[in-house]
Design a protein around this nucleic acid. Structure first.
Lengths: 140, 140
DNA sequence: TCCTTTAGTTCTTAATAAGAACATTTTACT
DNA sequence: AGTAAAATGTTCTTATTAAGAACTAAAGGA
């Protein structure tokens, strides 16, 4: 199961312009715990999660990334790109997830931005590297 | 923090006409764990909670009882009883919680039903007993 | 570049949930 | 009502996993 919790905690913490320490203070726990939540090493317990939900004013389901708030957005996208649910479409849930991922990983977003400005040849070269790197990583 | 999780798990399990064993099978865990969740002794871990959410088709927030789905209902109630949010009103969140509690505790609901059919004197007697019993219990 | 702040990691300890076995209660049937 | 079977509740032990402290690494600013 792919949880977005770690990313989300970090994302919303930053939205509030809080350091890990500040968030830790809000929750009355130690800072290193926050770090581990955000790294995905450790899952917060239920009570902590509920506190986060209140602090960030987001439903627990949303923090976990298991809500279907996306559905409306997905429709809009399909409207916009006029790919009305036919099989050829690349506008699917996967895209939404990817977008979400980018939104919450500004560095990567910036990298792709830069990538898009390279020459086609350069883009392909980068993509080849990425490909082999990913293959490698996934074998572990 | 008052969690309704225990009650909710039991409630929705019964709605599905499942025994603890059946639910345990669905989740691939041991039955005694379910019993402890429902007794409120133990909180399920996050992953189990998410599975429950999917199994029952209820948002996690709802299982936890921290959602504000009540708000609409509360409005309707106030309309119905024409107590438009003024301070005198007894139609408040507390009532909704109580109703919810009754809905999920059929035995108690039935008891109150029966109580309401007693004579006024008898009702008062029962309430006195309840009162002292509660006082006693709360002192522990 | 150096210093300060912030974030990540490791190791140990403490908390807590899971499971098995046993006890109690409820249900169904006669 | 009486009994057997099923369902649920409880206790105790074991295993899991998160919390915290201390240390390390990285980032940001003068």
């Amino acid at each position: 199961m792919m949880l977005k919790l770690a990313t989300n905690i970090k994302y919303y913490r930053k939205q509030h312009n809080w350091t890990q320490q500040q968030l830790a203070n809000e929750l009355a726990i130690s800072r290193s715990v926050i770090a581990k939540w955000e790294s995905g090493d450790v899952l917060p317990d239920l009570m902590a999660l509920i506190k986060l939900s209140r602090l960030f004013n987001k439903p627990v389901d949303h923090l976990l990334g298991i809500d279907s708030e996306n559905d409306q957005l997905l429709n809009d996208f399909q409207q916009f790109y006029q790919t009305n649910g036919d099989n050829e479409s690349t506008i699917d849930e996967t895209l939404l997830n990817t977008i979400d991922y980018l939104v919450k990983n500004p560095l990567l977003k910036e990298q792709i931005e830069r990538l898009s400005h390279l020459s086609i040849k350069q883009q392909k070269a980068v993509q080849r590297i990425l490909q082999t790197t990913l293959n490698e990583a996934e074998r572990l």
